[in-house]
Design a protein around this nucleic acid. Structure first.
Lengths: 286, 286
DNA sequence: AAAATTCATGTAGTAAAACTACATATTCTA
DNA sequence: TAGAATATGTAGTTTTACTACATGAATTTT
């Protein structure tokens, strides 16, 4: 082991050194150049055979290229061969096959997180984490597609030992909001930022003295106006899907961020609480 | 040579099969997971030594992963390693600042989707889409952290006009499962793949004649055994968070895929149904 | 042009690596 | 606690990678 040039692309080296190679080595070089994909699965004897030369010549070639032996050549061949896949956001076409659909949908979901990562305001995240860490009571409000996000959040924070509840019933939301007070925290989740019931509940909660946080895709919207902490996510939806799918993924990722942020803040208690709930769940498993 | 799965990323395979590995194999898997760069230059005996197991165990691991032997594993490791992605999965440290936390958590979430994209079986997706498209009745079962995923799915498919319900109550799941019949479809969601109640419900549903689909991170697990269609997701969790977060993101992305897949299959009706439900919601907005 | 020298290549042998079959140990089950 | 099933290691075999050397071809020198 331990060669300095070992990370250079072997195929390129092969070509640059070609002229200085002996005839038998050139035969091997030729074969490798034409069948790189095959070579990485060949043994030295098999390759020598295919090229009509001796194993020794193959080894000599490896050394000339700067490798310690055939294994190292193969490994470096394999490394250089991978085609780095690029992920591009693409619209779904009606005649896409399953492969295409999987690719496009999942890439859109990834990009939603990537885009959100870029625009998410660090200061706002910090403010949200601080508020939640100290919360007496924590509530999540979501309707329709945002309801599962709210429940996901509830589940995460419950595990952290924070008194927490999620509502997807607008009446319950308003009722509960009116009973909040100082030190309580509400998180309203609305993709559009214009869900009337959520806005109402946030306003009521704020009036009652609670801290209001929103997660939304719309920077200037009724929901952001009604919130003191604004977590803005970004997601380019596939136009094929007229409803927000990618943004829900982004919302959940933001929940993850809050969850970890809070966890770190409450380190020690949290570790204990997680252990407790995990133990309680073991009986539910095989 | 000649294995069908050989192009899947071995590191990802390692993780999806981890739970089904023997202890000595897990030791090797751990080492590979932490030192992938080193392993591609190690001989089988050196690796066995470092892991404190026998060479035979290393070979067994290779075979479990679907390779013919250690050489093939190494080659495929090398091929998968090159991805010089700008986003790198990194563990959370206790003294990370907000910026770092946001970055690490969201990258972990993105990677979960990326990894899942790589291993998700196209054929299984197709089978799931076909079954759901024709389903008389569609049910989603999830408990704990998987419950929000089930509800998210319910929401999506309801919008597509498919009779659909999600349960996060194990009693309700079993009851409902027993009342299913031919033409009905059940989707069981379990990260670990070992949630007893979900497995029971799936078995009952299968006995009743329904098609059973699972979404899980564990390729060989009670849940996959109980399902005729297996959707395997991959997610490397941040060790800081002892519960699955990234995998839930991946699960949701798979739901998105199914949703779009089904939508395309049911093109015309779907568009109409979406219009209807959207109109019905407009009254709820400003 | 023959001898000497250098260089290219293959042969045969060796050490190590990869793999197999089996024996032993461990764990699970009844 | 016996028996079965499973997991793991041991020891032996085959294959691979590599080395040292021998042969032969090409080139140079006298």
């Amino acid at each position: 082991m331990g060669n300095e040039i070992q990370d250079a692309n072997p195929l390129i080296k092969l070509r640059t050194l070609y002229q200085s190679l002996r005839v038998s080595e050139q035969k091997v070089a030729d074969y490798i150049d034409i069948h790189p994909e095959e070579v990485i699965y060949l043994s030295i004897s098999a390759l020598a055979d295919k090229c009509g030369v001796s194993e020794a010549s193959v080894i000599r070639l490896c050394k000339v290229l700067g490798y310690d032996g055939y294994q190292e050549l193969k490994i470096n061949m394999a490394r250089s061969l991978v085609a780095p896949v690029k992920y591009i956001h693409e619209e779904i076409e009606e005649d896409d096959d399953t492969d295409k659909i999987i690719q496009k949908v999942m890439v859109a979901d990834m990009k939603a997180i990537e885009d959100t990562l870029k625009i998410l305001d660090r200061k706002e995240v910090e403010r949200a984490v601080n508020a939640i860490s100290k919360a007496r009571k924590l509530e999540f409000y979501g309707l329709g597609g945002s309801a599962p996000v709210a429940f996901d959040a509830q589940h995460k924070f419950l595990r952290h030992g924070i008194p927490c509840i999620a509502y997807n019933d607008s009446h319950m939301q308003i009722m509960s909001a009116s009973m909040l007070g100082k030190g309580d925290v509400v998180v309203g989740i609305s993709h559009s930022g214009s869900t009337k019931d959520i806005v109402d509940s946030l306003n009521i909660a704020a009036k009652a003295g609670a801290e209001t946080i929103c997660i939304t895709s719309s920077e200037k919207s009724p929901v952001t106006k009604a919130s003191s902490v604004k977590l803005i996510i970004s997601a380019r939806e596939l136009s094929y899907r007229p409803e927000p799918m990618a943004s829900r993924i982004a919302q959940l990722s933001v929940i993850d961020v809050l969850s970890v942020g809070v966890a770190i803040k409450r380190e020690r208690e949290v570790i204990n609480n997680l252990e407790k709930s995990r133990e309680a769940l073991i009986a539910k498993r095989y």
